[in-house]
Simulated scan of single mutants.
Amino acid sequence: MKRSSFLRLSLAIGSLFSFSLKNVYAGTKNKYDRGKGFKVDAGKDRFNKSISPFDGDIFYTKVSTADTDGGMYVFESTRIKEGGPILHTHYDTDEWWYVLQGEFLIKVGDQTYNAKAGDFVFGPRMVPHTFAKVGQGEAKVIIAHQPAGKMEEYFKKISEGVAKNMSEAERDNMRKEHGFEKVGPPLTYLKQ
């Protein structure tokens, strides 16, 4: 191949590659301006549309999966009822909890932590974990999934009642489709 032909071919391939990367990136951008930050007020949702996936629980999105192109999902959970989710494990996401108000028991692997306002607990991916609100009154916890995986999508579907009439096997499949699975019952604790 002549040098001039090689250079033209190289430039053409480079231009095509650059064009393709721009289009791929443009397809993953969310509708929010990447050049700006944002503020979400206390007790408010990022989109002014809180969800209630579980009875006695309200989720306020603080950082949406779309805000970070899947990098993380952060929400505040305001809980009235005692208890919490099943023991489960995420395939590809780490999860953490920062207690704002009230008291929680948070189990990660074989360790159970008593977490109160100001306490932080980390749960690495593939390690079984769960938590439970304990005590009377309202409790609040910031929960994050990093990377986000499909947890925000899962909570929205649950809030919309998608799983309401599902069998346990169908619920298990739905969990797996969203990147996690049930590995045991909810955390039990003794009331004082």
Rank of each mutant, 00 (worst) to 15 (best):
I80A: 12
G56H: 03
G27N: 11
A66N: 08
K36V: 13
G149Y: 01
P53E: 00
I80M: 13
A169K: 14
K62A: 11
I51D: 03
D119N: 13
H88M: 07
K150H: 12
K36L: 12
E76P: 04
K81C: 11
G37R: 03
G149T: 04
F19W: 13
G84F: 00
F104P: 01
G184C: 03
G149D: 01
Q111F: 12
Y91K: 14
T89M: 10
A139M: 04
V40S: 02
P128L: 08
E160C: 04
F17Y: 14
K2V: 12
P128N: 07
N114S: 13
M151P: 00
D92C: 05
G184E: 02
P186T: 01
Q101Y: 05
S50Q: 08
D55K: 09
A148Y: 03
I142K: 03
T89L: 14
T68Y: 00
L9A: 14
K39C: 13
K22L: 15
D119E: 08
T89Y: 05
T112K: 00
S50V: 14
N30M: 11
T89F: 04
G14T: 06
P185T: 06
L190Y: 11
F120I: 10
S159K: 06
L16W: 10
P185E: 13
L16E: 12
Q101W: 06
A169N: 13
G14P: 01
Y189N: 02
I158S: 08
G137A: 08
E153C: 07
W96P: 01
T61R: 08
K81P: 05
I143H: 03
D69Y: 05
G149L: 02
H178C: 10
F155I: 06
F155V: 09
A42K: 15
D67H: 00
G35Y: 07
T93G: 01
P186G: 03
W96G: 09
K140Y: 08
Y32P: 03
Y25H: 14
G83Y: 02
P124F: 07
K107R: 13
V40T: 03
N173K: 15
R125Y: 04
T89V: 14
A26M: 14
G43C: 02
F38K: 07
S4G: 13
E138I: 15
G118E: 05
D119W: 04
I58V: 14
V134K: 00
T130H: 02
P147W: 01
N48I: 10
G84H: 01
W97N: 06
Q111E: 15
W97T: 04
L11K: 03
M126H: 09
K49C: 06
G161R: 00
F122C: 04
G27W: 08
